[in-house]
Computed example of a mutant assay.
Amino acid sequence: MKKNTLNLIVNPNNNFILFQTPLYLNLKRVLLFVIAFYSVSISAQVSPAFSVKELKLFISDMKLTEKNSNLSFSNAQNVENLVYTIQPSIYLYSGNLKTYGEKPTKLYTDISSLNGINNPNLLNNNIEIVEIKIDNLSNLNSKIDLSVFSNFEKLKYIYILSRVSITEQNISSMILNYDEKYSIFYKVDKGE
């Protein structure tokens, strides 16, 4: 007695899509899908998962967002105060640390001094904004590792002040270990 078993490889009813076209065409489709998927995953890894904005645009976007909500505290006004008005501050340049005022809320530094951020004399408990100065084109090859600010409990803003032309893409490529609690914005001020 002969048993009737389905032969899935032959597929006489031609009801499975994989067997409706020649095998080499299906392999091409699978290969194209894998290449496309791999390309998308690589491009997602290359592009930063954060945004960098020019200072005025950053503040205007905050104001626009706050306009539609009834907040008693304005983050946009706070950023303007931190950037444009005199604050109790710390200056860290070339290993020299100077503190002005009590409970400093602003840290001024440059890219070459970032490795001194872990100085035990640095009063970082109230720092809300760090202003990092870029002085020349060679600084654009440096990295800004945000993990050095992990002990700054109140830090919210990373402000890049550049003396040379710079773009959002330049800054994004310089940032390492981004943390979503930080907002990053910049201004180009060539001092002309």
Rank of each mutant, 00 (worst) to 15 (best):
E54M: 12
N78Q: 07
S89Q: 10
S89T: 06
T105D: 00
L97C: 07
K56T: 15
D61V: 02
Y84C: 03
E80K: 08
A76C: 14
S60D: 04
S89H: 12
Y93D: 07
L97K: 03
T85S: 13
E66D: 09
N68G: 13
I59H: 08
L92K: 12
L97S: 07
V83I: 09
G101D: 10
N96V: 12
V52M: 09
I86L: 06
F73V: 11
Y100W: 01
D61R: 00
N96F: 10
E102P: 00
S60P: 02
N75L: 13
E102F: 11
K53Y: 11
T85P: 01
S60N: 03
Q77I: 07
N70W: 00
N70A: 05
A76N: 09
T85L: 12
E66M: 08
D61Q: 11
L82Q: 08
L82P: 03
S51W: 05
K103C: 01
N78K: 03
D61M: 04
V52E: 15
I90E: 09
N78M: 04
L64Y: 10
I86Y: 04
L64K: 07
Y93S: 08
N96D: 05
P104Y: 10
N75T: 14
L55Y: 15
D61C: 03
Y93K: 09
I86K: 06
K98N: 12
G101S: 12
I90P: 02
E66N: 06
V83C: 01
K67Q: 09
S89K: 14
D61K: 03
Y84R: 10
L82T: 08
V79F: 02
A76F: 13
L92Y: 13
S60R: 02
S60V: 01
S69V: 02
D61Y: 00
L55E: 15
E80G: 02
Q77S: 09
E80Q: 14
K56L: 10
K67F: 06
V79S: 01
Y100V: 05
L64F: 08
A76S: 15
F58H: 11
E102R: 04
L55F: 15
P104V: 06
N68P: 03
N78C: 00
T99P: 00
L82Y: 05
S89G: 02
T65V: 11
S72M: 00
E80F: 06
